[in-house]
């Protein structure tokens, strides 16, 4: 969960920077509004998923991502409905590498071509071209 998203869930504007105690108070208020204990049976499941979101938002804003595990990968996110249908890949560097290669390749190929054309010209008529050294 991104932090602006988390702030929105807790009722702050996405680009504000609330203090810890503000976050805590907002979390308490929201928890009171959404905890499944306080809802009748038929509204419980909706309340439950709301609460999960709020708890997730709070933990991502409050204590940050705790990494106690030696494997490092402990970042988590809430899936809103039903079966989790998937995730966006957040890996920009890897995606841009082929494009960079293409551009670099084009530039170097063009440079090579120009150099070859220049050499050919020089060989064919060395005396008539005033621009040649």
């Amino acid at each position: 969960m991104r932090s602006d998203e988390a702030r929105k869930i807790l009722g702050f504007s996405p680009d504000s920077c609330p203090t810890r105690s503000e976050i805590k108070a907002a979390y308490r208020r929201k928890a009171f509004e959404s905890h499944p204990d306080l809802f009748p049976a038929h509204e419980k499941s909706q309340a439950e998923s709301n609460f999960k979101l709020i708890a997730e938002a709070y933990s991502s804003l409050g204590s940050g991502a705790r990494s106690r595990s030696p494997y490092g990968a402990t970042t988590v996110r809430v899936v809103r409905t039903g079966v989790p249908m998937g995730y966006g890949k957040g890996n920009r560097a890897l995606v841009t590498i082929p494009f960079l290669l293409l551009i670099a390749g084009t530039v170097s190929f063009a440079g090579l071509n120009a150099a070859r054309a220049y050499k050919r010209q020089e060989k064919m008529c060395p005396s008539y071209n005033p621009f040649l050294p």
Partner: peptide, 24 residues
Amino acid sequence: RVHGGGFVPIIQRNTAIPARKSMI
């Protein structure tokens, strides 16, 4: 369980419940 017999927690202890967490 992960390769080599290690344990990777998905829901850490002291997480507020109800809770839903996922990992890749």
